[in-house]
């Protein structure tokens, strides 16, 4: 208990080693840290969390580097959580986002953490959510999360970020198509990066059309996403991107009810995600299962119960249904 208090205070003071170790313990699934994570969560919620997602190679890390530079100039301390996919075959990962952010390595006002998605296919489920709780409790001025958009899991980022930046490139005509499927709903700011490549203006115009179409009946409390062009490689457009993010944060200050709704939606997403994860882990093939699971299995094998009813009954006994 004493240890817990000490660690809690250390993280709250922003002590980097304590926080970094705690994140590793979270990644390793150490149950013992759960009470600490709970306390940190209770203390958190004050730091703006900005999510950046988009297809591989779109320039997310380069943009992140530019934003971090700008925020440092503004006097904010910054945490970056950069999530990259694990290799599904070996479980290893090559976490290379830091290469683009190298100029911040020696800056103690910037805390960069790379994370492998492990089971979560580029999504933010699992340890990343709890790592964000730790970073949030450390008292940074800004938190930035980078995840690869694989077309499926971008929705996750919405649950963890107050502002979602979706990065596209002019070359991604197909991406704009794919985005219509789901990303259009979750972006607060859309960025066409690599503005130096041909087709950037066309991509911006397309995106503006799509956004306008979705929001043509928006009331004043609804945020209408910005669409911007950037060239992360030389930094142009990044000041405008930061301004759009500030406007997004300010918008929700003006409309606290809209903010509350959004917060509730976020929390719901995270809670459901957690529920799903716990069940998947608890009942995965090969996991040690309770006696009542074996009984339910017997019933299904003997056709005394159908699988759906047996599953419902199991959930009921666990207090989950």
């Amino acid at each position: 208990m004493d240890d817990l208090d000490t660690l809690y205070e250390a993280v709250r003071r922003g002590e980097r080693r304590a926080a970094a170790r705690l994140i590793s313990q979270i990644e390793a699934g150490e149950r013992a840290v759960a009470p600490l994570v709970r306390r940190l969560y209770q203390a958190g919620g004050a730091t703006p969390v900005i999510g950046i997602t988009g297809p591989p190679g779109a320039g997310k890390s380069t943009l992140a580097d530019r934003l971090v530079g700008l925020w440092r100039q503004q006097g904010h301390s910054v945490a970056v959580l950069a999530v990259d996919p694990s290799s599904p075959l070996t479980g290893g990962a090559l976490l290379g986002d830091r290469v683009r952010m190298g100029r911040h390595n020696a800056d103690r006002g910037v805390f960069i953490r790379s994370m492998a998605s492990r089971g979560c296919l580029g999504g933010l489920a699992g340890a990343a959510g709890d790592a964000l709780i730790v970073l949030d409790a450390m008292g940074f001025g800004r938190i930035l999360v980078e995840t690869v958009g694989t077309g499926q899991n971008e929705i996750d980022i919405l649950h963890h970020a107050g502002s979602v930046v979706i990065v596209q490139t002019p070359a991604g005509g197909d991406d704009v198509q794919a985005m219509k499927a789901g990303m259009l709903e979750i972006g607060d700011v859309f960025v066409v990066n690599k503005a130096d490549l041909p087709g950037a203006d066309r991509a911006v115009a397309q995106l503006r059309d799509s956004v306008a179409f979705r929001h043509h009946m928006a009331g004043p409390e609804l945020w209408v996403p910005s669409v911007l062009k950037t060239q992360a490689s030389d930094g142009s457009g990044v000041v405008a991107l930061d301004a759009a993010l500030s406007a997004h944060i300010a918008h929700f200050k003006d409309f606290p009810q809209a903010w509350a709704r959004r917060q509730r939606l976020r929390a719901e997403g995270i809670l459901v995600e957690r529920l799903r994860e716990i069940l998947r882990e608890r009942y995965r093939l090969g996991a040690a299962k309770p006696q009542r699971f074996a009984c339910a299995l017997d019933d299904v094998v003997a056709r005394r119960a159908d699988p759906y009813s047996a599953a419902l009954a199991l959930l009921g006994e666990g207090g989950l249904a």
């Binding site: 980097r16 390595n105 492998a116």
Partner: peptide, 24 residues
């Protein structure tokens, strides 16, 4: 099966030390 945190070239000792800490 290793998780590699790749920093690339042109690092300073100070930058690497910071990265060792935050990356644990």
């Amino acid at each position: 099966g290793v998780e590699v945190i790749y920093l690339g070239e042109h690092n300073t000792a100070e930058g690497v030390v910071n990265a060792i800490i935050t990356e644990d």
